[in-house]
């Protein structure tokens, strides 16, 4: 039964967009917390920790996100753990994000000159004071653009969750296309919706950079 694309379909897409944004948000927060741990383990003056973090990063960055999604969605049930698409997508996107955010933040931390550590030390600042008052404010400024850039990627990558049946924007588009047979209209609208979300993020990044005088 082929029907016309209607206002109801648009509402359905907008509702699905909600899940796209929510999934990206969960992955950003979960991946952010886990990424912080990765960055710390990667910079700690303790070889086994560095090695562990680096292996994790290589494993996650070196395998396709789709494969990771499948591992959690189809693999966990084999171990007797039943997960629905939402949980599997949240976990695998968080892990995916943590490997990239961890490396972005490590790079930002290490790009602050060691002379800044020394300048703080020479004034009698403790290690934690040097980190929080001298290094982090500079590292955060450096990390704004690449972090937001990655979050834009993350928003678009949530579309892979469609392949395990999670009804976000892309899966919703597939469903409506099957019913209306108007792929150009449906996917066109989906593309515009993705663009609106991603463009807003980029704008936010530029505003943050201006606010924190990024070049300084």
């Amino acid at each position: 039964m082929i029907r016309e694309f209607s206002l109801n379909d648009l509402v359905f897409l907008l509702e699905a967009l909600r899940w796209t944004v929510l999934l990206a948000l969960v992955a950003a927060v979960g991946g952010g917390l886990l990424g912080l741990l990765v960055a710390i383990l990667r910079t700690l003056a303790f070889r086994p920790a560095n090695w562990l973090a680096l292996s994790y990063i290589n494993l996650v960055q070196g395998t396709p996100l789709l494969g990771q999604l499948f591992v959690f969605f189809f693999g966990l049930p084999l171990l007797g753990v039943n997960v629905d698409a939402w949980v599997a997508a949240s976990i695998s996107l968080s892990i995916y994000a943590s490997a990239f955010l961890g490396e972005i933040w490590r790079g930002s931390l290490q790009s602050v000159s060691s002379r800044q550590w020394e300048a703080g030390a020479s004034l009698g600042l403790t290690y934690m004071q040097r980190l929080t008052h001298v290094i982090l404010p500079q590292a955060i400024r450096i990390s704004i653009a690449p972090t937001v850039g990655f979050l834009v990627q993350l928003v678009k990558n949530t579309s892979l969750a469609a392949l395990i049946g999670f009804v976000e924007l892309t899966r919703a588009s597939q469903i409506i296309t099957a019913a209306t047979f108007a792929p150009l209209t449906v996917y066109g609208i989906a593309a515009v919706l993705y663009f609106v979300v991603c463009f807003s993020l980029s704008q936010l990044s530029q505003r943050l950079e201006r606010k924190y005088h990024a070049p300084r």
């Binding site: 002379r115 800044q116 300048a119 020479s122 004034l123 009698g124 001298v134 400024r141 005088h213 300084r216």
Partner: peptide, 21 residues
Amino acid sequence: DLNALRARAGMVFQSYNLFPH
């Protein structure tokens, strides 16, 4: 206590090392 010492022995570097932020 190196931090206590450094608070009493000031150091100025060739590359100034002001905090840029």
